[in-house]
Write a protein that binds this DNA or RNA. Structure first.
Lengths: 355, 355
DNA sequence: TTGTAGGCGTTATCAT
DNA sequence: ATGATAACGCCTACAA
């Protein structure tokens, strides 16, 4: 004989419950019951896994409505292996730069019924690795990585079999996709703009030394100089770290070096804004005395004093496309992405030199 | 007789696997097996649910190590009802203001082994409600809400039995906690500073009309005026919307009104920065012609030109404390939070008037 | 202290 | 097309 130990909770109890639908208690099984079908049928309807008769379809739909049923993603994750969640490894959740990308990822994923799970790596390998593990333990269905220090190999290994989309890096593979922007061309564009305005002695405040894009931007700066037949003067290049404070320090070094220049191309907007403050402190006027160009076109650039001429990076678009690429990978399709090109946004921080 | 249909996947197979620990395949059952104990024992050790003998303790620890076992949160969520995740309803993931709070929440939660799940409400009731539902469907263990439009009642109802921490609102209850800052006092502080510097005709650019804190800041502004025996001139108060663009527009209105003023207290930093640009455009110098004070002390304030005098809101701290309060609620303890007070941060946008 | 067994809410396989 | 039924990986009431 089968003695049935009291279950932990009465299940599928026939209490229709007057509770109007307090979240969380309505199960698929209850839906099946009130619709007079089997749980499998309900599941099929929910997932479109197979065709079902009109009659049952309707009955189930009705039951779902009246009971206010919401499938439990946790149970789904366990049973089906899909959690409808995508892990997003970012560097700082509050980054002015990536914030917009996160926003976009959220928007795009939401469209598809997915939810992003954000974790921060803080630009540190160990943390990034930990974060990746946490995500995988959470059984995310895919991984989107925004920049970071982890090597591509480590990422691939870390992701295992999960589809992977990496922003800011070129990667290709069956379940892997990388999205990049042409930093070098963008930097050349910025520099060229200064040259077009008659500047000949153009300084550059570089980015964080071990970010690949910092090197690319420096290369773009040199490209433009070369193309214009202008000499490259190492004394006019000084390191920054992509922060305002770094820009401030850098511009002081530049000024102290006594090497004349009429314009500065900063590796990003934050650096440019810091530089602008540095110039202000030393009573060097922008753009009257020195012209300034940034890179990124974050919100603060538009309201800087004076408004900052910069190179627009389609950050939101990048996030959106990254998420889109992930959805494609998940469907087993190749990821097709077309990012809008970088664009120069002329504002008021550059002066055209008289001659 | 019982015919056993082939299971979906071989389970607890005795294959030790040379895979060194490819994430996700090692189950608690396998740990139990290699440690020579029952699964419940392993579970108990993992959760500290009961005392176990030293010997088994060691054996299990060893097994966990060697197998590289990581408990599956999804399964845990299903079985135990705890997902070790906290839902965080924010308004915009890329908000310069809440970004820092999110960062803090992440930090604090991480300490406790929890993970935040961020969703955005975009300041819209319907979205906020949807977001809340999504979080609950995901079986988060608690809810942290950052501002928003949802009424406290709706929040309470939406959260159901889940512990709830709300930032920017006063709420109390057994499983509910609200964190607030004294916006009114902060605004009074800012205004008082201007008064102390000799300003008598002080304009105010208000915040988003239907944010409670906008009203509080306006009230604080009036408080200071009253205390100093200065008249309140409605013509010197104009609405803003907490954005730079709003500040720009507002300052134009102020200037066009031809009503003299020597200082502006803006409802937040973004507004102040927009106002600064507006003044710059009209060739009104800050602080020489007009002094300017903001509110929040976000990063851009420090590098504005000139650096903005403002009232520091401990945003990071708020996020940190909110998460801490949640952890307390989860332990069944009352939430104790002590936020640092608001502080005036004098920088360079205020001029002391000669007399 | 430890083990056994049933259950969490779904999905997927097999059979009809 | 539909229904049983086992399984996903873990937790916990109960028994020992």
């Amino acid at each position: 004989m089968s003695s049935k130990p009291s279950p932990r909770r009465a299940r599928g109890s026939s209490t229709p419950a007057t509770d109007g639908g307090a979240a969380g208690v309505v199960t698929l099984e209850m839906v099946a019951h009130t619709a007079g079908v089997s749980p499998s049928t309900v599941s099929r309807i929910l997932n479109g896994t197979a065709r079902v008769s009109q009659a049952k379809q309707q009955a189930v739909d009705a039951a779902i409505q009246s009971l206010g049923f919401r499938p439990n993603p946790v149970a789904r994750g366990l049973a089906g292996g899909r959690t409808l969640s995508i892990g997003v490894l970012t560097q700082t959740i509050s980054s002015p730069f990536y914030g917009e990308a996160l926003h976009a990822i959220e928007d795009r994923l939401d469209e598809a019924g997915y939810i992003p799970i954000f974790v921060s790596g803080h630009w540190q390998e160990v943390e990034e690795r930990k974060a990746l593990e946490a995500l995988i333990a959470r059984r995310v269905d895919g991984l989107i990585v925004l920049a970071g220090r982890l090597s591509s190999r480590a990422l691939q290994a870390g992701a295992g079999h999960l589809p992977l989309v990496v922003v800011g890096r070129t990667m290709e593979g069956p379940r892997v996709h990388g999205l990049t922007l042409d930093n070098r061309a963008g930097a050349a564009m910025a520099t060229q703009h200064l040259i077009d305005c008659g500047h000949r002695r153009i300084a550059h405040i570089a980015g964080e030394p071990d970010h690949a894009d910092a090197h690319e931007r420096l290369a773009g700066y040199r490209d433009a100089l070369d193309r214009a037949g202008l000499p490259f003067d190492p004394a006019l290049v000084t390191p920054g770290d992509y922060t305002e404070a770094g820009g401030l320090l850098a511009v002081n070094r530049l000024l102290d070096a006594q090497r004349p220049f009429t314009a500065i191309f900063a590796a990003n907007d934050q650096t440019a804004i810091g530089a602008a403050l540095g110039l202000y402190r030393r009573h060097v006027r922008v753009p009257d005395d020195v012209s300034l160009v940034g890179f990124d076109d974050l919100a603060p650039a538009r309201f800087a004093i004076p408004p900052l001429t910069t190179v627009r990076q389609p950050v939101y678009e990048m996030g959106f496309q990254a998420a889109g690429a992930m959805m494609a990978l998940l469907r087993g399709e190749p990821a097709q992405v077309a990012l809008p090109p970088l664009q120069l946004v002329p504002r008021e921080s550059v002066r055209r030199l008289q001659r």
